[in-house]
Write a protein that binds this DNA or RNA. Structure first.
Length: 423
RNA sequence: UCCCCGGUGGCUCAAUGGUAGAGCGGGUGGCUGUUAACCACUAGGUUGGGGGUUCGAGUCCCUCCCGGGGAGCCA
């Protein structure tokens, strides 16, 4: 048993691969079987005369995606896609597939999404999923190397973290619970216990968004650091993104090639990224001070820079209640967003948290939030409060940018959107 | 929720208001090195549902359903 990605180690030897029929071509007395096994695709050459008529006929007609165990001799050949191929010795058909609906030709997105469970087997989704996996590992390695403790937040929560209108409600015995839209408040508790913590998992938002940047279930990583300022976590965010991109460039060159990603642009992603204030950004895109950037403005901003750009100091009205305000200018928050280049837009949002009990109580009232649900959170200001800051990075948006795919739905195995919860 | 676009064989798409077609996929046959192989033949359709205009509707009108793109909101 050998994986296709390791074939080069077995040149001249007889090997057995277990996989599926990806494609097949024949030309009279020779059949080419393309077999995939999850690690790669290899071409198997079956010559008439070397095998029985029955076996030759079987190879010539076996349906796509049938599961097969093939034995053959590995050798190098310039003509083979991938550089190595197998000269056929034996085949065991584990299962004959029915007519496979997904061809190598074009399909519409609806057709593919309806068959996401099968579409995952295709070249492009495979490449994206491998890169997603690399990103996840890079994120964990990065925080681990910095001495962070992974402290996962609950997914069932008693109340809103941010706005109450975007929560999925679920029955919880005799009461109601909500699916978490962010682990941040819990990370604030965590950093007061462990100093530097992060959580990594799914978040849920019942936003009725229909855009290429939105999913109702998405993954985010949320670090939170005690005694950190806005500047500290901005540096942390830059380091994280630089590390993720470098990891993908290092481990996934083949996948980036399959995706036809221009790696020259990714190779430029080095610290420092650079930052501008909200006010400067507003002037750059020619809009009025006070509002949040719409998608067109965000895309415009994101296209102005080769590297991700950090935008700081938004008006506090358009940010969450827990954001600390700038002591020099009460109108603006001590926050930042990181916008990815090439039009991909916001991948990170974060900032310094309000650490003063009285001010936080005031904000909770201002935002009309139910005080009793936040008593535990206010405790963090009663018992040893200190400056602290953190951020959240959206995994799917980051993967979409790195892969150069247009829509975030292609960067998660089974996307959940406003009008799709199947398969 | 709002705006725009679309729904035709299994798939991707054609078709001035006038005989519903092509490529791919399926089937059959051919071809000893194919690269989304190619060539020939062949099967396959209540044009999303309902209503209307018309001698005649895939095409025009109304309505509903479904999908796509975008907005708002956000990671």
């Amino acid at each position: 048993m050998c994986y296709i990605k390791d074939l080069y180690k077995y040149e001249g030897e007889e090997v057995t691969i277990k996989g599926w029929v990806y494609n097949r071509r024949s030309s009279g007395k020779i059949v080419f079987l393309l077999i995939r096994d999850g690690t790669g695709i290899v071409q198997v050459v079956v010559s008439q005369g070397k095998v029985s008529e029955d076996v030759f006929g079987l190879c010539d007609t076996i349906p796509y995606e049938s599961s097969v165990i093939i034995t053959g001799r590995a050798y190098k050949d310039e003509r083979a896609p991938g550089g190595y191929e197998l000269s056929f010795e034996n085949i065991v058909v584990v299962s004959f597939a029915e007519d496979y609906p997904i061809s190598l030709k074009e399909h519409g997105i609806e057709f593919l999404m309806e068959r996401r469970h099968l579409w995952l087997r295709s070249r492009k989704p495979l490449a994206v999923m491998r890169i997603r996996s690399t990103c996840i590992k890079a994120i964990c390695d990065f925080f681990d190397s910095k001495g962070f403790v992974r402290l996962d937040a609950p997914l069932l929560t008693p109340s809103a973290c941010e706005s109450t209108t975007t929560l999925f409600e679920v029955p919880y015995f005799d009461t109601k619970a909500y699916l978490s839209q962010s682990g941040q408040l819990y990370m604030e508790a965590g950093c007061m216990a462990l100093g530097r913590v992060y959580c990594f998992g799914p978040s849920f938002r019942a936003e009725k968004s229909k855009t290429r940047r939105h999913l109702t279930e998405f993954w985010q990583v949320e670090p939170e650091v005690a005694y950190a300022t806005l500047e500290d976590v901005m540096k942390l965010a830059e380091g994280l993104v630089e590390y993720i991109v470098a990891s993908v460039l290092d481990k996934n060159s083949l996948e980036l090639e399959i995706l036809e990603r221009d790696t020259k642009l990714l190779k430029k992603i080095k610290n420092p990224f650079g930052s501008i204030t909200y006010t400067e950004a507003v002037n750059l895109v020619d809009m009025d001070w006070g509002g949040d950037f719409g998608a067109p403005e965000e895309t415009k901003l994101s296209n102005m820079f080769e590297k991700p750009i950090l935008v700081t100091g938004y008006p506090h009205e358009i940010k969450a209640f827990y954001m600390k305000r700038n002591p020099q200018d009460d109108r603006i928050a001590l926050n930042f967003d990181m916008l990815a280049p090439e039009g991909y837009g916001e991948i990170i949002g974060g900032g310094q948290r309000e650490d003063d009990l009285a001010k936080l109580e005031e904000r909770i009232d201002e935002y009309n939030l139910p005080r009793k649900h936040y008593e535990w959170y206010l405790d963090l200001r009663r018992y040893g409060t200190c400056p602290h800051a953190g951020f959240g990075l959206g995994l799917e948006r980051t993967v979409a940018w790195i892969c150069g795919v247009h829509h975030v739905r292609e960067t998660i195995p089974f996307p959940r959107t406003i009008d799709r919860i199947y398969p």
